[in-house]
Design a protein around this nucleic acid. Structure first.
Lengths: 338, 338
DNA sequence: TTGAAAGCGCTAACAC
DNA sequence: GTGTTAGCGCTTTCAA
């Protein structure tokens, strides 16, 4: 049995296709109740669903949103970003079309061409971690940048408020009474996340009347191994210079800090307090003890991006900062030796 | 400047739209080289890209694949499955349309309707972990099940070969010389992954001439806490009954085993060998010591599903099992007390 | 209150 | 070798 078309419904209801279209799209002002009823019955009976391809051709609106991402594969956060984007799309009766480019400019150009050939109503250009991107040439003007920003400010953009998030993290340590708070940083200066978090660390210490000890600031590779090396160095300092707390660039490095502490015979949080960043699924909550960290608002950012793309929300500024949330678990305690 | 249509190209090249269509679709058998050249030039000059919506309406093929997933948000593996599906789709010039249902049957019905209204060429029905699903009524006949199977065998289906994977894991422990090998199991009997892995544990012990000691089989909640509890119980056994190795249902439970071992003052792998399952990103490789585990073939499964959906590959059986790979790291050593 | 008909951009049968 | 033309299924004037 072939799929029902609008003509089938029209015939079954004994009206014209124009009337069916009107009724089924709710613009039934001019149609009598009785006719409307007949149309609905016929449509239901035939199991009619409009062909959105045909509709798209006619209206030039496909109720479809394209999402271009750099590397979905390797990150644990992508999922929440997509979920947010998808939910917002769905609530507004749109579908999400996904293309993943592996950071290959050629693929990216293809992706843009493919989406524009699909007549998508909007496109979201997403990075899997907060970075400054070179927006590809052909990106439609009404696109939105998700978890990234352009140099030029050419498109509305949403990123986490790294600075404010890091302030929460460091402040939690200060509030617990720590004075020697180290920062285990990410090596490489190109990440906005890295320098914003670092700046927050400095500012909180300063505004709390603590002094910045540069020996307590060590950068290493972003990994458990990097965090472990950095923390081991910190813990090898002579007792009175040694930190009583470390703020880590992210949860993976915090995991390394746990390992270093254990190997130094220290217990967390009794001998060393640790705060991470990211609230990485299946990591932060499952460490021993569970890690106090800062949650990135990926889901909300995903939502925001499609709401802006759909014109349901107007960004007040080029780059919108979305708040991060402190997730308090068990890795922070007052210093044992004040 | 309006987007170029085929008519614009035709006019610019001084030919008919039919000729342009023929040339641009490579079916240029009947066209003279000179004309073909002119058409290509004109198209390039106008920056023409075909409108796939119009083409889809005409050909009834949208070069688009729908992917319905239950809960992308919460799992670290979804990404690799999507990446595989996406890459395969892209290689065959298709786009992936994603809908995520949160396991809500109403949303699921909507999703199916939406995809069918979009005239997708194929649909993939994906679960985020291997399970037996009730296939929703309206799912098109030519759909493919990804990381799940139906009771009825109504659709081709791809799942990991859990049994063979678990055999690799347990065999690695046997090969290292262990005789008392525990299984930290997942509580709840409804997961195919759980009973297949358990069965493999039994079979390998038996075929290796070892006896099954039921006190070495403990099931608990699937989490770090569950793994920790189960392992703690195991380690509290009197020395000669205590396991020298544990095979864990998954990496999260293995993480719990690490914690339990540490709290018992045991060192991995010297005093206790551990093998996990999943090769969970950012977990397995970053533990101390890095965890030997079994990698699930999510990427390959994603690829397979669209290749079958596109008819590029014919499944030999209802349920296709895809091989898992043992990832050898540093959590296995010979038993210290043989 | 309703119907006829044009046309969205493309492909493919058929003419020439 | 190339052009003409009829639709694909829908929405939306315009006329009745």
């Amino acid at each position: 049995m072939r799929r029902a078309r609008i003509a089938d419904v029209a015939e079954a209801a004994g009206v014209s296709t124009a009337t069916v279209s009107l009724v089924l799209n709710g613009r039934s002002v001019r149609v009598s109740d009785e006719t409307r009823e007949r149309v609905h019955q016929a449509a239901a009976h035939l199991g009619y669903t409009p062909n959105t391809v045909a509709r798209g051709l006619r209206t030039q609106l496909t109720r479809t949103i394209g999402l271009i991402s750099d590397e979905i594969a390797t990150t644990p956060f992508a999922g929440r970003m997509f979920a947010g984007a998808q939910d917002a799309a769905r609530e507004n009766s749109h579908l999400l079309i996904m293309v993943n480019t592996d950071n290959d400019p050629a693929v990216e150009a293809d992706a843009i061409a493919a989406l524009s050939a699909q007549q998508v109503d909007a496109v979201i250009y997403a990075a899997m971690w907060h970075r400054v991107v070179e927006v590809p040439a052909g990106l439609p003007a009404n696109s939105v940048l998700l978890d990234c920003r352009s140099e030029s400010g050419s498109h509305p953009s949403i990123v986490p408020d790294e600075y404010a998030g890091a302030v929460l993290a460091v402040q939690a340590l200060v509030d617990a009474g720590h004075q020697r708070i180290a920062y285990v940083d990410a090596a490489g200066d190109d990440l906005p996340a890295a320098w914003l978090r670092r700046e927050a660390w400095r500012d909180v210490l300063l505004s709390s009347g603590l002094r910045i000890d540069e020996t307590l600031h060590i950068a290493d590779e972003i990994s458990s191994a990097g965090g472990r090396r950095a923390t081991a160095t910190l813990l090898a300092l002579e007792p009175q210079r040694r930190p009583t707390a470390v703020f880590c660039f992210n949860d993976r490095m915090a995991l390394g800090a746990y390992i270093a502490a254990r190997h130094a015979g220290l217990s967390i949080p009794r001998d060393l307090s640790v705060v991470g960043f990211d609230d990485q699924p299946f990591v932060a909550a499952e460490l021993d003890p569970p890690l106090t960290t800062v949650a990135l608002p990926h889901y909300e950012m995903g939502r925001w991006s499609v709401e802006v793309a759909l014109g349901l929300r107007t960004p007040e500024s080029d780059v919108h900062l979305m708040a991060c949330r402190l997730v308090t678990r068990d890795s922070v305690a007052p210093p044992s030796v004040p």
